[in-house]
Amino acid sequence: MENRNDILNELKQLSLFLAERKKENLFIVPENYFSSVEHNVMEKIYAESVSAELKNSSLKEIKKQEVFDVPYGYFERLPNEILQKTSRKKSQSILEGVNEYFQYSFRLTHLLAATPMLAVMILAILVLTKPADVIENDSAIAQVSNEEISNYLSENISSLDESSIVAQMDDNSISKLTSGIEQEANEYDELLIDATQVTIDDIQNL
């Protein structure tokens, strides 16, 4: 390969003027420019590599970092809090179930218990309010005991027409009857209230 002299000799042959001319540098660079190049270049390389990394990486590759904060010990307390809430709800739902059961059974019992009583009362009303001549003439009924009438009515309650029974009653009798029923209903309601105060332990012990 050519050396420096070869190059100079070639120039001398082409232009002696240029070959003998002293080479000066026309261009000036800012002071300490060359000491800053490496720093500037490395800074740009770093910035580009970070940007390229972000561009190439998908969301799953970016380090996940939670930006929200939670109170101290929140996750330690959470399981217990959830358990407490679920057991309270459970006991509430059990109580509600018990309550519904009692309401339903009490209504049924109430109805069944009230039926013979109602029958007796209706019969009594009919007998008592019947004119004397009718009672006298209805000797067959007069000979029937109350117990027998009650039994009859209990056995045939389904065939009795409520409206025809009520039609035989006057306002006073109906009022007496409904007040009796209301009193009984109130007693059952009190029982229900007591039932809602049953604790979990009580239910578990049932």
Binding site: F27, V29, F34, V37, N40, V41, I45, E48
Partner: peptide, 28 residues
């Protein structure tokens, strides 16, 4: 190599700021 490359670039583009930009791009 920065000085030799810089002067080579500078003689082509003349202006220092342009030469500086090109030199940095070259190294990148």
């Amino acid at each position: 190599y920065q000085e030799r490359l810089y002067w080579h670039i500078r003689r082509i583009v003349i202006n220092h700021d342009d030469a500086n930009d090109i030199l940095q791009n070259v190294f990148i």
